[in-house]
Amino acid sequence: MAILQTKNLSKVYNPDTVPVHALRDVSITIDKGEFTSIVGPSGSGKTTLLNMLGGLDKPTSGSVWVNGEEITSMKESKLIDFRLHNIGFVFQHYNLIPVFTAHENVSFIMLLQNRSKKEIRERADDLLEQVGLGDRKNARPVQMSGGQQQRVAVARALASEPKFILADEPTANLDSTSAMNLLDIMNKMNREQNVTFVFSTHDQRVIDRARRVITMVDGAIHKDEYRDVEETAEN
């Protein structure tokens, strides 16, 4: 089932002055349970595409559909709520609220969803266990390594039970061990819980772990390939 779909998506920055065609006629379909990586040279439009998929930015033309709903024409207030319940985000760095502990960071998004206190607490505990941070629940972001922070970010993204998780270069600021560790966690959640991930990356070893690799060049889809990968290579 198509969980995420773009139809002839185009984005032109500065149309009036120096037009930059960041996306050209991008049409992709992502199904539930996919583990997709978007790759391509710097400036090829990866971030722009992810922003469109997440409803953070509006396209110049074309549309984005999430679970059969068009989000490109949604009003911003509705879109914020839509994101809260449907889309998980992991950014490149400084993802977390600095004054909150790991546990509070994960809980906060569920609080925004108005879940019950008990459910929030238990689910946050559980998710932190799953990303291997059961013993770092009360640590603040500054007390954690970059890899640990990104794992908390993944736990937070999952907490809201989104349809899919978007991650823009989640490993860019991590050393290779932490990067692989994060990938393992994402991979495990994908396999065990059928969580859909769409992430962009430059890192070849991360690319190697993706089952679908969409290559972008100059704002357009250059290649879109499905591959077999040996699961959890390092573990």
């Binding site: 709520d81 809260l84 400084y94 993802n95």
Partner: peptide, 16 residues
């Protein structure tokens, strides 16, 4: 600003 941006991205309402 970045923190605000992230909170708005993940679904916190602007008014809130």
């Amino acid at each position: 600003l970045r923190e605000f941006g992230i909170l708005l991205s993940v679904g916190m309402k602007r008014m809130k």
